[in-house]
Design a protein around this nucleic acid. Structure first.
Length: 544
RNA sequence: GGCCUUGUGGUCAAGCGGUUAAGACGGCGCCCUCUCACGGCGCAAUCCCGGGUUCGAUUCCCGGCAAGGUCACCA
């Protein structure tokens, strides 16, 4: 069999000598230890938390080592292509602080491009041709029907499915038959001629999982599809070699095809990159858990977090705590340090699937937001509202001074103790709504109409806007005392039956009248912010 | 089913031959307190199972079991 002749027939035309590519994409001039990592999504435009999870790990490893993170688009399957997807992915990741140095639509150094696999057809074909020419690849004329029939037969016989060994029908087709098929214009794919033995185990050092055992590949996998476009596996080997990736950090779902990739790198004569396979983010699904999926979990799309108004840094911090087991402890000790200062390491990444925990994210969000100044919070809320807020919410930002007073109170920015009332932008906007409009009562008063009337009238009689907090509160106590409520909590606790209630009950009635809720920050300050007129109006309104 | 990976409280997890088995989230209780939030204190709750090895196994070995991943001209 003349392999060179076959190669020429299969992939006719002049292709550059292979050394041309080695020179065109030389090893990167980077300091020792610098890692080149990448993100290689297919352009569906849909990106969820699981993608962000790996993205952050890749970003940290590249940038903390003084290396490069690039974005490659795996658009070899046109069925998956969605318009505007690359922009969407880029924007979503940028919001969460994942910045690329090079890649599709990034505008960095283009030496190692093009970044869309469809634009790299020539390179793949040159190497496919080479593999055919050296006898490591061959054309396969099997139809989809034949292949699925084969699969069914194998399944029925409880054999391993696939195109391998004795089942690789086209592997050793007589030369005349190959050319007869070609002459007849039969469509074909190009398959790798695997030399692997599935009985042989390979020990492999995974950057995350440590030492793992894999079986040699013996599948004659398709490397070039009938339309001349490479499969993922083939494109991966060529791209990660020529883009000079040092560490392929990807989801665990790729572990099963690692043997294929290993054989491909070897067949092509490329040195292998290091690999790290990280566990996927799981979701509780009834009794069991499963990895996050695009189809089933739209609520875990990144868009969901932006809509809710999660603070980007909080999401990042949460991802980091899941990603590196010692991050949380470090962050607890260095609460004010930028998370980027943490020394991230691949081997500290979790080996088992992690359940996503919204409670934990919410807790981190509270803490992160409580670190902001009132002005920073204002900016954050405003930019969120601009995109996702209602008209009424957007209008609240007109009076900046007023808004800042509200935030100052609700965040405790001028007090000794910080409050942690805010979790997300949308929740914060709801929580402060009563400062901007009269809201429907959320909590029901626990005393009857008559009692409330007495309390409100007594309060209104003595209320004076100019009072300071202490005087204000002593007046509330007086109101309480005069109506049979205990003015001092201690008295009430000592003898609850002697009173109708306590000052706290009186305060609660006033609080509900003014804000619609039983729980708010300091009532005195709320009244000061609302102003005398509005305060009186609300209490009077509660009487009718 | 084959192959691979992983099994420490409800969740994320530290520990990897001898520990009262850290810590965080959540839950519960108490304190602080005009309510809430903050803060402080405390409680409940964990080493998948069975065999070895060992004076001693959560930790090492073997075997189960369970969960997850994967078996395409998708990535």
């Amino acid at each position: 069999m003349d392999h060179r002749k076959l190669a020429e027939r299969l992939l006719p035309g002049e292709y550059p000598d292979l050394s041309f590519y080695e020179e065109k994409y030389p090893p990167r001039a980077l300091p020792k230890g610098a890692e080149v990592t990448r993100l290689a999504p297919s352009p569906t435009g849909f990106i969820h938390l699981g993608n962000l999870f790996v993205a952050i790990a890749n970003e940290r490893i590249a940038h903390q080592s003084g290396g490069i993170l690039y974005l490659r688009i795996e658009d070899t399957d046109l069925k998956r292509k969605v318009e505007g997807a690359v922009e969407a992915v880029k924007n979503a990741l940028r919001y969460f602080d994942v910045k690329f140095d090079e890649g599709a639509e990034i505008g960095g150094d283009d030496t190692y491009g093009p970044w869309y696999q469809r634009s790299r057809a020539e390179i793949y074909r040159a190497f496919a041709k080479h593999l055919v020419a050296i006898g490591r690849a061959y054309p396969c004329f099997c139809t989809e029907e034949e292949l699925s029939a084969l699969r069914e037969k194998q399944t029925a016989n409880k054999e391993i499915t696939g195109y391998y060994g004795k089942y690789a029908k086209c592997r050793d087709l007589p030369e005349e038959e190959i050319y007869r098929n070609l002459d007849a214009g039969k469509p074909f794919v190009i398959r790798l001629r695997s030399l692997g033995d599935p009985e042989k185990k390979i020990r492999f050092q995974d950057e995350i999982k440590g030492e793992i055992t894999v079986t040699e590949n013996d599948q004659d996998v398709v490397i070039l599809k009938s339309d001349g476009i490479p499969t993922y596996h083939f494109a991966h080997a060529i791209d990660d070699h020529f883009m000079r990736t040092t560490l392929v950090l990807r989801g665990e779902e790729w572990l099963a095809s690692l043997p294929i990739h290993l054989e491909l790198f070897d067949a092509l004569g490329f040195s292998r990159p290091r690999y790290g396979h990280n566990c996927s983010l799981m979701k509780q699904d009834g009794e069991t858990r499963r990895k996050l999926s695009k189809r089933k979990d739209p609520e875990l799309s990144l868009e969901f977090y932006r809509k809710e108004g999660y603070y980007a840094r909080a999401v990042k911090v949460y991802m980091l705590t899941l990603l590196n087991s010692n991050f949380e402890e470090w962050y607890l000790k260095n609460p004010d340090a930028p998370p980027e200062n943490f020394k991230f390491s691949a081997n500290k990444m979790s080996k088992s699937g992690t359940l996503f925990d919204l409670d934990k994210l919410n807790d981190i969000s509270k803490n992160e937001l409580s670190k902001l100044s009132a002005a920073e919070m204002f900016d954050f809320l405003q930019s969120w509202a601009a995109e996702y807020g209602s008209e009424e919410e957007k209008s609240r930002f007109a009076d900046r001074e007023y808004f800042l007073k509200v935030l100052d109170l609700c965040m405790g920015t001028s007090g000794k103790k910080r409050r942690k009332d805010f979790v997300t932008a949308s929740q914060a906007m709801r929580a402060i709504a009563y400062f901007f409009k009269r809201v429907p009562r959320e909590d029901e008063p626990r005393f009857d109409e008559q009692t409330r009337r007495e309390v409100f009238e007594a309060f209104l009689r003595s209320y004076c806007f100019a009072d300071d907090a202490q005087v204000w509160f002593s007046k509330v106590k007086e109101v309480a005392g005069s109506l049979g409520f205990a003015a001092e909590m201690k008295d009430y606790k000592a003898n609850p039956d002697a009173y109708r209630g306590s000052v706290s009950d009186v305060a609660e009635l006033l609080r509900i009248a003014v804000t619609g809720r039983a729980n708010t920050p300091d009532l005195y300050t709320i009244m000061q912010i609302l102003g005398e007129e509005e305060t009186r109006a609300r209490i009077e309104g509660a009487l009718s």
